[in-house]
Design a protein around this nucleic acid. Structure first.
Lengths: 148, 148
DNA sequence: CTGAATGCAAAAGCTTTGCAGCCAA
DNA sequence: TTGGCTGCAAAGCTTTTGCATTCAG
C-alpha cells in the first residue's frame, strides 16, 4: 500500500467496488505505523462510522490482503494484526509495552536461503519476528534501576 | 525438553507436582515432531485419559513453557502449537498440507544482529518462519503437471 | 438495474477462568 | 494434612457465516 489513490486504483482494476467503508479502512491503514488489529481499526472508525461492523472490517482486510495491499502479521499470538507496508521487512515486538516496530532489511539482512533448501522446498515467504525490549522501555527500566 | 526423566526432574526441582496427566502430556510432546496443538494433544490422550480436560492441557503447557521445557510457536495463525525441541531453530510451514517442519540453524544460519540494533534494543528472542511448499507436496504437484 | 458489499445477529473456534473436589508430596 | 492440580462448566475473545438490505457502477 502506497497512497490512498493507488490503492483505490488497484481495487478498481480488479473490479472491486469502492465504498466509503473501504476508503475509511484504507485511510486508517495508510496513516498508521502501529500494525492495528481489527478491534483497533473498529475503535478508530466507530466515531465517524457508527454503523460499521466487524464483519465489514474483516472482509475488507481479507480483500486488501488478496489484492496484495496489506499483510497479515502473526507476531501477536492473541490476534492478527495488519501491516500496510508490503515491502519485505521484519517486525519487532516489545515484551513490555506490546508495541510492534518495523525493522528494515537494510538494518538486518534477510537470511540467505541455501541452495540445498531451495532445491528441496519451494519458498514463498520468509518472516522474521524479533522479541525483546524496545528503546523507550529499555530507557525507563534503566532509570528505575539507577533510582535511589 | 530432552528425555521424559529429565523433564520430570526439572519440574520436581521447581516444586511442581508430578501428576499422571502431566506425564502423559510430556510423553506426547517428547515423542512428537509434529508441533501439536492443544486439540491434537487432547485427541491423542482422550483414549487413555477419557476425563482429561482442555483446561488441564492448557495449564500444563503453560507450566512447561515457564519451566523452559516447551516453546509456543505462532506459525499457524489459527491456533498455538507447541514444540518440545527448545534449542534455537527455525520453522517451515507447508501451505498445501499444513505440516510444520524444523529447520536447523546449521542449514539456515540465524541472521546476525548488528551492533546498532543490539545497542538500541534488548533482544531476547529471534524467530524465523518460512512458508512455502514442502518436498513431498512439491513432488506431487510436479507429477500432476506432467500427467498427460 | 444488478451483483457485490454492508451490517446485524448468530455461531464457531480457541483460550481463559472460577470453583469444588481430589490427590501428590 | 494441605496446597497444588484436575475437571467441569461458563465465559471471553477473535473470527467466520448466513442472509436480508443497501448501494456502487
Amino acid at each position: 500500500m502506497k497512497t490512498r489513490e493507488e490503492t483505490i486504483q488497484k481495487l478498481r482494476s480488479k473490479g472491486l467496488k469502492i465504498t466509503p467503508q473501504r476508503i475509511a479502512i484504507i485511510d486508517v491503514l495508510e496513516g498508521s505505523t502501529s500494525h492495528p488489529s481489527v478491534d483497533e481499526i473498529y475503535q478508530m472508525l466507530s466515531d465517524r462510522y457508527p454503523t460499521i461492523s466487524y464483519a465489514t472490517i474483516y472482509k475488507t482486510l481479507e480483500t486488501l490482503c488478496e489484492a496484495g495491499e496489506v499483510r497479515e502479521i502473526n507476531i501477536d499470538p492473541h490476534k492478527k494484526r495488519y501491516d500496510p507496508f508490503t515491502h519485505p521487512h521484519h517486525h519487532f515486538r516489545c515484551l513490555v509495552c506490546g508495541k510492534i516496530e518495523d525493522i528494515s532489511p537494510e538494518e538486518i539482512p534477510f537470511p540467505e536461503m541455501p541452495k540445498k533448501i531451495k532445491e528441496k522446498y519451494e519458498i514463498t515467504d520468509v518472516t522474521l519476528y524479533i522479541y525483546g525490549i524496545c528503546p523507550s522501555c529499555k530507557k525507563q527500566q534503566h532509570q528505575h534501576q539507577t533510582d535511589p
